[in-house]
């Protein structure tokens, strides 16, 4: 008899006859905040994690990204294949852009100063961005190995609550929820930003 059959048989014998249990979902699904307030709340909560929030109108995204990279002294940047080219238009000639179609070696990612991506959904109440591997976000490794992540968030992708976000996500895709830069509280429960994931996170909110 396989271990599978044994474990399943043990479960059945442990349970015996059981009545179905109703699931109670009386919690909030959405919030009272209007669209403007949702964006404000998102910006405020991202900032709480010691990530840096930037605001730009659609025409100013390229300049904002360029300014962030200049300020960080980043000379090499990775972008996913589907990242809008117009948003890179303001980068100086001294910044090398590597476009990842899934083929950049990990060592090259490790040498890159920064990565710039879009995002699938963002959650205001928790200050979270969610990546789902779409063309403007790329595979998971590119937002992980470089030490600096610049994430462009369209205001209309920001929802208020976790339940609203979960309803919009596709579980068949690889999903990464990011709330601030990598951090640890393992030493005396003092929160320190920056361990293995990107130590710097810049969030550019576009529109609204």
């Amino acid at each position: 008899m396989s271990s599978r059959d044994v474990v399943l048989a043990r479960i059945r014998s442990a349970l015996g006859p059981v009545a179905p249990v109703p699931t109670v979902r009386a919690y909030r699904r959405d919030s009272d905040l209007d669209e403007v307030a949702v964006v404000e709340r998102f910006a405020e909560r991202v900032d709480d994690y010691r990530a840096t929030v930037h605001r730009a109108d659609p025409g100013g995204v390229a300049a904002t990204i360029a300014a962030i990279l200049v300020a960080a002294g980043a000379r090499s940047v990775v972008v996913p294949e589907g990242f809008p080219e117009r948003w890179l238009a303001a980068l100086g000639d001294d910044v090398a852009v590597a476009c990842d179609g899934g083929d950049l070696p990990t060592d090259e990612l490790d040498r890159a100063a920064a990565v710039v991506t879009g995002c699938a959904i963002a959650i205001a109440e928790t200050g979270t961005i969610v990546l789902d591997g779409s063309a403007d976000q790329g595979r998971r490794a590119i937002t992980l190995v470089p030490d600096h992540h610049v994430c462009v968030v369209a205001a209309d992708r920001i929802v208020a609550t976790v339940p609203e976000a979960i309803a919009l996500l596709d579980p068949t895709r690889p999903l990464t929820m990011i709330s601030g830069p990598s951090a640890t509280s393992d030493i005396e429960l003092d929160r320190v930003e920056g361990v293995h994931g990107p130590r710097t996170l810049d969030v550019v909110i576009v529109g609204a």
């Binding site: 928790t126 979270t128 690889p174 990464t176 929820m177 709330s179 830069p181 990598s182």
Partner: peptide
């Protein structure tokens, strides 16, 4: 757990994702 609104990273994956991971 950590007393945060959300932990920095939550990874969700379903089986094997071609070209990613």
């Amino acid at each position: 757990s950590t007393g945060e609104r959300m932990n920095p990273y939550t990874s969700l994956w379903t089986g094997v994702h071609a070209g990613d991971g």
